[in-house]
Amino acid sequence: MLRTILTALTLFALWLLMSGIYKPLIVWMGVGSSVIAVYVVRRMDNAADTERLAVRLRPLTTIGYWFWLLIEIAKANWAVTKLILSPKMNLNRHLFKVPYTQKTDLGQTIFANSITLTPGTISVEVEEGDFLVHAVSYSGDDMDALSDMDRRVAAIESAGA
């Protein structure tokens, strides 16, 4: 029940941020739409008996990880930009396996999305224990960089997960 109320309040806060018009009628419409949304979500929860996705991450480490990831994205972008603009494209395409050590689904998702977010590497398929990754200019360092990223993503999962 507490969870439902919190969801409704979060939705309403989001609505307030998006709307920007605070006349009584409009605000009541916002209240109504968030209540309807929560009702529909609850019905869907009852219909599909799937597990709830629990978000358990270390907040400070997560923020640090985002800054590190931004720098990585910048570096990778520069590498791919040089590749695109060079007159003779020296591609070294390769498909290889990267093992992951995250325990939760969320951790694995963050790792796979981080791989895809840095241009030059794309996670293609998820297998038991490792991702299939495609690189456009493969070199031996890629493996080290990805296992470094893997370690960092595993570090933002809290121990209780």
């Binding site: 930009t81 395409r93 241009p119 794309i122 456009v136």
Partner: peptide, 14 residues
């Protein structure tokens, strides 16, 4: 196709 994926992600991220 596979290398084009990488090029598309440049405009999508940076």
């Amino acid at each position: 196709f596979w290398s084009r994926l990488h090029a598309a992600s440049v405009s999508e991220s940076a």
